[in-house]
């Protein structure tokens, strides 16, 4: 048999080595271990959430965020009040100037 055909036969033998494979099975008491894991996962999820929420970094970051939000809203309100006050002064000035025309506005009417 030539070297090439021997190699080819070896390859085919390797490729066929999984033929007739018997099924593998997990270790006994698989369901018991699965149940234990599910219970553990449920507990650890709650623990993880609690641990995360009570972390100093999280508490500080939340506090800082609330303070920043408060400051932003407060500044916004002050700005709005200032604009409103300015607008009402302007309106009053316009109204006043309409009601009391000065002599300079209509020079022909002057005596």
């Amino acid at each position: 048999m030539s070297n090439n055909s021997k190699n080819e036969a070896d390859l085919e033998k390797i490729l066929a080595s999984l033929d007739g494979l018997e099924k593998a099975a997990p270790a006994p008491f698989f369901f018991t271990r699965l149940q234990a894991r599910m219970a553990r996962t449920e507990n650890s999820y709650m623990q993880q959430v609690t641990r995360f929420v009570t972390r100093p970094a999280f508490v500080l970051a939340t506090g800082l965020f609330v303070l920043l939000l408060n400051g932003y809203i407060l500044l916004n309100k002050i700005e709005q009040k200032e604009i409103a006050a300015e607008e009402s002064t302007q309106m009053l000035a316009i109204e006043y100037s309409n009601l009391n025309p000065t002599i300079y506005e209509n020079p022909e009417e002057t005596p």
Binding site: K13, I14, L15, S17, L18, G20, L21, E22, K23, A24
Partner: peptide, 14 residues
């Protein structure tokens, strides 16, 4: 674990 004993080496390679 389901591989036949005489095929173990070939199966490992594959």
């Amino acid at each position: 674990p389901g591989v036949q004993l005489d095929n173990r080496e070939n199966a490992r390679l594959l």
